[in-house]
Design a protein around this nucleic acid. Sequence first.
DNA 1: CTAGGTTTCCTACAACTGTTAGGCAATTCG
DNA 2: CGAATTGCCTAACAGTTGTAGGAAACCTAG
Lengths: 204, 204
Amino acid sequence: MGRPGLNRSAVIAAAADLADELGFDAVTISVLARHLGVRSPTLYSHISGATDLRTAVTAYVLDELADATSTAMAAGEGRDLLVAYADAIRDFARRSPGRYDATIRQRVPPNADPAAEITDAVAAAITAGRRNADLALTVVRSYGISETNETYAVRLMSSLIHGYITLEIAGTFAHSEPPSETTWPEVLEDLDRALGLIATGQRH
Amino acid sequence: MGRPGLNRSAVIAAAADLADELGFDAVTISVLARHLGVRSPTLYSHISGATDLRTAVTAYVLDELADATSTAMAAGEGRDLLVAYADAIRDFARRSPGRYDATIRQRVPPNADPAAEITDAVAAAITAGRRNADLALTVVRSYGISETNETYAVRLMSSLIHGYITLEIAGTFAHSEPPSETTWPEVLEDLDRALGLIATGQRH
DNA sequence: CTAGGTTTCCTACAACTGTTAGGCAATTCG
DNA sequence: CGAATTGCCTAACAGTTGTAGGAAACCTAG
């Protein structure tokens, strides 16, 4: 049925690779088309526009991230699980900065249209986002943290991990000693202690 | 000397306001020109291009942020200073999401040109960035943290505050209980404890 | 008050990106 | 082999960035 060629998945995967090469912002329809050796209008057979492309890349990449994290979390609990989880995210972000960028650029503009259309790509991004949220929950639960404190613990952990990685990639830590490589395990140590205290109710 | 009209500062300030209204990405030369009631080419008399504009906005906004933080930090030390500092940043980010966005979008693309030109705007952004870094250092030092652990403490604090605010603005916390308003003070409490432990050398 | 110089702003234009419309050609299945 | 299907193309338009050169408004000096 018809001639073979590009398909939606191939286009999105190529876009993700391009994001790592040139930065997420540089992934435009025309650049992507040139990279794939076709003309811009051709891509409209596979994606419905620039925003659809970006959203689809976000969803695709969020799934990759969840896969990577989930593999790394195969065994262990408590501190070991935390380190495996956090290291997996950080490795992903350092190896694929454009992809990581895509995961955090899913931002709602200041005056976001509340009735924004829920396209397939948006739905996929939401689902993939929840996958990642569930993995964070798994880490927190392995500490034995009560349901009451679960949400708080996830926020604390996510904020710290995400914040550190973002600043690290932005180069904020590059011009002072000690190297970022050294302080990262210390951050995880402090985070482990905090989660432990939450679990045993020794806070407040 | 010459007729009065726009000047560089006015253009940049208008751009910052526009960022809060429409989002940082939406601040383009043409949109800004329309907003100011002039034609696009006119703006090239005041700024040297789109990237110069964005960089200049970043520098301008980083200075505003340092002003706001520094005012809030007038008195207090230790925990009080931490809360004043963190609340000032969070208030700034919530009141001016477009401006806050500008402060964290100063990102180096994956394959950044190492010999990238240091324009006046870039230099201003670097200076303003250092101002903010010094304020963070002030907070940490008020805990009596030794010089050895200073950098680590700043990274821990900055990562957590920045990460929490980013995720909060992105809407990550909007769909679970308790409200973000409730968990924010708890985050600062845990951060205060961690900084206290670093100060008294009770870590490791 | 007038003449110069300075600065602002404009029109015109070129190049590129996003997007739509419609058509040719290659492939696969009956 | 024929025909439906599909992929890709050219043509064209709107919007954006950026350049070039010119006209008008303003301030100051004589």
